[in-house]
Amino acid sequence: MSRDRDTQSAAPPDLYGRARPDRLMRFLDVFGNYYLPAVTKSDRYGRRPATEPSAPLRLVVTARKALAEDVVSLRLAAPDGSPLPRWQAGAHLDLYLPSGRRRQYSLCGDPQDRFVYRIAVRRIEGGGGGSAEVHDILREGARVTARGPRNAFPFAADRSVLLIAGGIGITPILPMVREAARLGLDWQLIHSGRSRASMPFGAELAALEPGRVEILPDDEHGVPDGAKLLSRASTGAAVYCCGPGPMLDSVRRAFDDSAASALHFERFAAAPIVDGRPFELKLRRSGAVLPVPADRSALDVLLERNPATPYSCRQGFCGVCTLRVAAGTVDHRDSRLTEQEKAAGRIRVCVSRAPEGSRLELDL
């Protein structure tokens, strides 16, 4: 990921060393400073100003369907039947469940349908409770609130694409498949999972263009490794991958030796902690001091103390777990907080940490 520059310089001197500014350079400086921001709503380096959060959407469950073992799909619409905000392949909704939990679910329907959003959720026993709530409580007619759609996994419609999905990771990939087919791209899909009975959207995938879809249940073909999956990539192909952490890690390790040219991926579970060091959290209001081991996140420790601690993506993206630090130095490991937010003491406790042996005092 490229980083924006922190400062902007004035127009350079004349190309030939003369003291007065070169006319071409002066024109380019004006173009970058005034014309581009006016047209693109961003500054000369492509940075866009922070936008206000979208207004909440009031939705109703209009249909519910069992798709596979422990997987249900929900169709969501506006209660008055009005059009919904547009979205593109790879987007997700932030869904506010009746309990107050906030969870992110990929949209897996048709972006051309302005009146219905579709999500699919696998029940995860022993998880954070969001999936169980969807399965047990959200029946037809239930009202929910959502925000979005937002897209952290955009599909760039590369000329040649290999799409890899593991289990419920098919949800953001399925709209990409349909978009690739609609645009006439050279595409191929691989969907792996524990068994055919556990893998959703089998009928929809079977109806796609023959020869472009490969279904690889583990109990029939064994667990595929990254090299095997990437062997299907044509030279220069872009790879889009979503699935469990071990599959993503295997694909990433094998990528450099593959014929593919780009790799885009999305996790639906927390990434492993890399180079973690132990530190402490102090809760300002109670005075409690909580040790954070090297292999656990601050969020993990906070959840142990209070299971109602808000969180969603566990990847530093969504912002649900953001807290204020009253004292201490933060090792920021997210890519979303602005410099102003960091200076104001904000931290995303699902990924960010503190230097070894130090203490963060949280406004809790």
Rank of each mutant, 00 (worst) to 15 (best):
M1T: 04
Q8C: 14
A11S: 13
A11W: 02
P21W: 04
R23I: 04
L24R: 07
V30G: 05
N33E: 11
R47E: 10
E52H: 14
L57G: 03
V60K: 09
T62M: 08
R64M: 02
V71C: 07
P79A: 08
D80C: 07
D80N: 07
H92G: 00
H92M: 00
D94G: 10
Y96G: 01
P98R: 12
S99Q: 04
G100W: 04
G100K: 06
S106K: 05
L107G: 01
C108K: 04
G141D: 01
T145L: 14
F155W: 05
R159K: 14
L163Y: 04
G166C: 05
I168F: 09
T171S: 14
R178T: 05
R178P: 02
D186Y: 09
L189A: 11
F201W: 00
E204R: 13
E204K: 13
L208E: 12
E209K: 12
P210V: 14
E214A: 15
V223K: 14
A227W: 00
K228L: 11
K228H: 06
R232A: 12
M247T: 04
A254R: 08
F255D: 02
D256E: 13
A260C: 11
S261L: 10
A270C: 13
A270T: 09
F279Q: 00
L281S: 07
R284P: 00
D295E: 07
R296T: 05
L299C: 07
D300E: 07
V301T: 12
E304I: 15
Q315V: 13
V320A: 15
S335Y: 06
R346N: 03
R346M: 07
R348I: 10
V351T: 07
A354Q: 08
A354L: 09
L362M: 05
D363A: 11
